[in-house]
Design a protein around this nucleic acid. Sequence first.
DNA 1: GCGACAG
DNA 2: ATCTTGTCGC
Length: 230
Amino acid sequence: MLLPVIECRWNLTPGEARLWQRQLAAAVRLEALAAPPRLIAGADTSYNRGSNRVAGAVVVWDTAERRVVAQASAVVDTPFPYVPGLLAMREAPALMPAFAALAVMPDLLMFNGHGTAHPARCGLACHMGVVFDLPAVGVAQQRLCGRHEAVGQAVGDGAPVILDNDPVGVALRTRRRCNPVYASPGHRADLAAARAVTLETTYGHRLPAPLREAHRLANAVRRSFTPCKD
DNA sequence: GCGACAG
DNA sequence: ATCTTGTCGC
């Protein structure tokens, strides 16, 4: 395994989880990427309503060949429900083992959710980026916090998401006539990098390919353990 | 107290 | 997140 299995209690209380986020936020490093990332890992989860069985999926997208070159998944039962601001408590337990099963080391991690555009500046992308100490960015479809001006209509147009006078993310138009996505750095990356990797892997779609592929895989895994009605 | 609220 | 048909636009 290239990436380690991180041991931790996932049955924390919301209060304990927020204390943990405070610690993790202090470890986040916002900086320019050391090198342009060729292999981008996209991660996502899928689960049925009312169920705690979560499918975590990770794909490695080769930006040079424009294809998935590795993938891994895991199924985990997590007691923690989805709580706005505590998404990592819900999804990380399934994503960690999926990453640990990956046979290829990615250059950057991309998550379906926010990075620093989070009330505690510690969204899912920060959480995962810090525990693995790898460059990470978050791309969400909805705003969690902060405010921003209207986004231009052209692909590539963006408006910074401001939280307490700080630009913590960017609302980005990745496709015409589609709502913008929210990109923010998670760890060992900066706002410019989050914006760039998002736009560079969109290929005419609203969401970047690593996330589209991870979503597809996570859904396939979930269906594999979901009883079908005949 | 009231609204907001990633997936 | 997931449950779902048709439908508008490129």
